[in-house]
């Protein structure tokens, strides 16, 4: 039933996930600010209101705390809500229902109740939007027990992880990055879930492992191509899920290469990149030829000015530089 060769971009892949899951499961609802507005949600919500109605696809008032809490409550009452935050920054108003309530509910009820909800946060940064329209908060969510965090980098995974997140019986934070909306790839037409907690090896290599996710995964692939011309063979892992982390795939790769560059799309201090580097160090210590190196955003709020943005966001060049560094200072 899949039509070979059918290509989709990131946004339309998410859109297809909604169409298919909402069709197969009437308990799935999509609520949040801007579901009727392409300015907020791009093309991810095309056709949903027309097909499923304004009750199941509800463009809400600007009430992040209440709307997110309502999604949690609706999940407790048997729905499978997706609540969208068109800027991840806006989720900060919703920390209580996400962190205090949804994340803890199953455990503090001894498994008597659970919360099948998706918190879909869109990162839409750069464009001189400054500090409150640029923040990537995945590491904060990954810190919290009881939350799963996915951060796809490809259209195929965007669709599959949205499907999997909706079908999951526990709260999942879906990190959506608008910088990924440009690319297209073949996306299966049937409905499918991409396993949560499973990384993908995007390129095999022997000298260094580049661990990345979200927008830095394609940048790591670009970096690997550059490194190859210099005789450095890089293996690229796209984590896809940040929690639960697929440590086994990372450890296996670094055990082979002996070197790791960890790429985080968020701030350096306290970021998931540091956690991954720590796990690599703990698990691979004997085989490490050099300490892992992190690529991350500096510990600064996002600046407005384009001149500062260019210095603020890491890209392929920073990944290349980090890989060269870790290869150069290797101990064997």
């Amino acid at each position: 039933m899949s039509s070979p060769g059918r290509r989709l971009g990131f946004g339309l892949a998410i859109n297809e996930a909604f169409h298919q899951v909402m069709e197969e499961d009437p308990s799935v609802v999509l609520i949040g600010q801007g579901v009727k507005s392409p300015w907020y949600v791009g093309n991810t919500c095309n056709g949903l209101v027309a097909r499923f109605g304004e009750r199941r696809v509800y463009d809400t008032p600007v009430s992040e705390n209440a709307v997110t809490g309502a999604a949690v409550g609706a999940a407790l009452a048997g729905l499978r809500p997706v609540v969208v935050h068109p800027r991840m920054d806006f989720m900060l108003y919703a920390f209580d229902p996400i962190i205090n309530e949804a994340a803890n509910w199953r455990y503090m009820s001894g498994g008597a109740a659970h919360v099948p909800v998706v918190f879909w946060g869109i990162i839409n940064r750069a464009g001189e939007q400054a500090a409150q329209h640029s923040q990537a908060l995945h590491s904060v969510f990954a810190h919290v027990p009881g939350l799963k965090v996915v951060a796809p980098s490809t259209p195929r995974d965007a669709k599959g992880l949205m499907v999997a997140a909706i079908r999951d019986d526990d709260p999942v934070v879906f990190v959506d990055e608008r910088w990924l909306y440009g690319g297209e790839e073949e996306v299966p037409t049937e409905v499918y879930g991409t396993p949560i907690g499973k990384a993908a090896i995007r390129r095999e290599g022997t000298d260094v492992t580049l661990v990345a996710f979200s927008y830095l995964a394609p940048k790591a692939l670009e970096a690997a191509a550059v490194l190859a011309k210099e005789g450095i063979s890089a293996e690229v892992i796209d984590l896809r899920t940040l929690k639960p982390l697929d440590a086994a795939t990372v450890v296996k790769s670094v055990s082979k290469t002996g070197r790791a560059v960890v790429c985080d799309v968020g701030w350096r201090t306290g970021g998931i990149g540091g956690e991954i580097a720590a796990q690599i160090t703990e698990a691979c210590w004997a085989g490490l030829k050099a300490a892992p190196v992190r690529v991350a955003l500096p510990d600064l709020p996002a600046p407005a000015s384009r001149s500062l943005e260019a210095a603020y966001y890491p890209g392929a060049a920073q990944v290349v530089a980090a890989a060269r560094e870790v290869v150069a200072r290797g101990r064997g």
Binding site: F90, Y93, Q129, A130, A131, Q132, H133, A304
Partner: peptide, 25 residues
């Protein structure tokens, strides 16, 4: 704001304009 804030963060504390933010409310 020395180019750090842009349109959504205009500020002039000496004039009593204490700042602006695009987080609703």
């Amino acid at each position: 704001a020395r180019g750090r804030g842009g349109s959504m963060h205009v500020i002039a504390p000496s004039a009593g304009m204490m700042g602006a933010a695009p987080i609703v409310a």
